[in-house]
Design a protein around this nucleic acid. Structure first.
Length: 255
DNA sequence: ATGGTCGGCTTCCGA
């Protein structure tokens, strides 16, 4: 089973690029982030005509997450437990062929400190609590998405350039590690232990041309999923195409 | 040298 995650930065702006990538990706489940679309304005037919089942959790203008799947999903949940009334649409999960898959758009959190950073840490604490329950269930779980967290120095081109940024603050990395250390496997890290692991390049300052990227899109696997991990990758080439998102897709394969 | 660029029911905000 192949599961992919892609922050598309606007479904309407990305539609041709996204459909092309989906065609070649051959994924069974796709986690999308930053739809920037109300559910009623989402171009459903473009996907349904190609055989995708859709579960949307959108909002106007910003944020928004979705799951695309080859078969209908079960037990779909929108919003993290304890944050169901959050107007920001950042979490959706569903079960596909016995594997629980979540699409996560974790808050950016800048500027830090401030209310946006407080919200980021609050979201991470709610995610940590939910993740603990998922680990305890002993089922295969894949928590995929844009975490807006740079886990280690080697996950950015220049650690000094990111000092003080909400994606890289020690407190942010500590909150991320509190989740990972429950027993999750960072599958992309496992398959890209050195360089060439970036998943995001800013539109500004020629970041792509200079390879000034960061690794912030992650797939965390529960032990039951990690036992089945056979491959993982980053579709880096997507960043160099016309009308590209500032993120590229990441994916894992379970046997 | 404090720039630059995307997307969105846009004239600023979020990233």
């Amino acid at each position: 089973m192949k599961i992919a995650s892609f922050n598309i930065n606007g479904v309407k702006a990305r539609l041709p690029r996204l459909l092309e990538w989906l065609e070649g990706c051959k994924a069974d489940v796709v986690c999308l982030q930053e739809l920037k679309s109300l559910d009623e304005n989402f171009p459903r037919l473009e996907f349904e005509d190609r055989g995708w089942h859709l579960e949307l959790h959108g909002q106007k203008g910003f944020n928004g997450v979705a799951l695309l799947s080859r078969a209908p999903l079960h037990d779909v949940r929108r919003g993290l437990p304890g944050m169901e009334d959050d107007p920001q649409a950042r979490y959706i999960e569903g079960r596909h062929d016995g594997v629980l898959v979540a699409s996560i758009y974790l808050p950016n959190g800048n500027p830090a400190p401030g209310p946006k950073y407080d919200y980021k840490l609050d979201f991470m604490e709610h995610l940590r609590c939910h993740a603990a329950g998922l680990i305890a269930s002993e089922q295969p779980v894949v928590l995929a998405g844009d975490y807006n967290v740079i886990p280690e120095n080697s996950d950015c081109y220049d650690p000094r350039a990111w000092e003080g940024d909400a994606l890289f603050l020690p407190q942010t990395r500590a909150a991320y590690n509190r989740i990972v250390h429950q027993g999750w496997t960072d599958a992309i890290r496992l398959h890209h232990p050195g360089t060439d692991c970036f998943t995001f390049w800013d539109y500004q300052r020629g970041s792509w041309e200079k390879d000034h990227g960061i690794r912030i899109d992650h797939c965390l696997l529960s032990p039951a999923a990690a036992d089945r991990l056979s491959d993982a990758g980053i579709d880096r080439m997507e960043r160099g195409r016309e009308k590209a998102s500032d993120h590229v897709p990441v994916w894992i394969v379970l046997s």
